[in-house]
């Protein structure tokens, strides 16, 4: 696999995933803003948090692409649909495990147990992130599936 191309496709997959998530917000299907959640790890200033969030999120998505490539190589399946399936599983994992855990690790997120403080004011996502709207599980899964499918498609072309 060509490293430069892998870097390019990792970026493309991240862009595609971000577009799905932003479109979901824009169309009013979900209030989930991963850039805001990520950015507020770094700063408590809303305007800067969004910028930081996009930057860190893009870098994270880019790097995570290599985990997917590793997965494709390890099982020997290099197809778009396997990438989509991996993305879907990844999305489920995010929704049921990672996002509900955020209040315990995010420095600016409130929790239903500890309440609101001067530092912790962000609304927690809750199970399956439904606190951010009932459409959030579907839009998150769609975004992750697109991400995996783009990476799988690249792996398919490269092999």
């Amino acid at each position: 696999m060509n490293l430069a191309y892998a870097v390019l496709w990792g970026l493309l997959a991240t862009v595609a995933m971000t577009m799905v998530l932003r479109a979901s917000q824009g169309f009013g299907w979900s209030r989930l803003s991963i850039p805001l959640l990520v950015g507020t790890f770094v700063t408590g200033q809303r305007d800067r948090a969004v910028v930081w969030g996009y930057l860190l999120y893009a870098i994270g998505g880019w790097l995570f692409a290599f985990v997917y490539f590793l997965l494709f190589d390890s099982v020997g399946i290099h197809t778009w649909w396997f990438g989509a399936l991996a993305g879907l599983v990844h999305g489920v994992f995010l929704l049921v495990s990672v996002l509900p855990l955020l209040p315990f690790i995010h420095p600016r997120m409130a929790s239903e147990y500890h309440g609101v403080t001067a530092e912790r004011q962000l609304e927690p996502p809750g199970f399956m992130a439904v606190n951010y709207g009932y459409g959030t599980p579907l839009t998150t899964l769609a975004a992750q599936t697109v991400y995996g499918a783009v990476l799988g498609a690249f792996a398919q072309l490269a092999n």
């Binding site: 989930l32 609101v116 004011q121 962000l122």
Partner: peptide, 14 residues
């Protein structure tokens, strides 16, 4: 809040 995660403002002295 519309379109973003809500912010929950603290009470009391805040």
């Amino acid at each position: 809040t519309k379109g973003d995660p809500a912010v929950l403002p603290p009470l009391g002295r805040h």
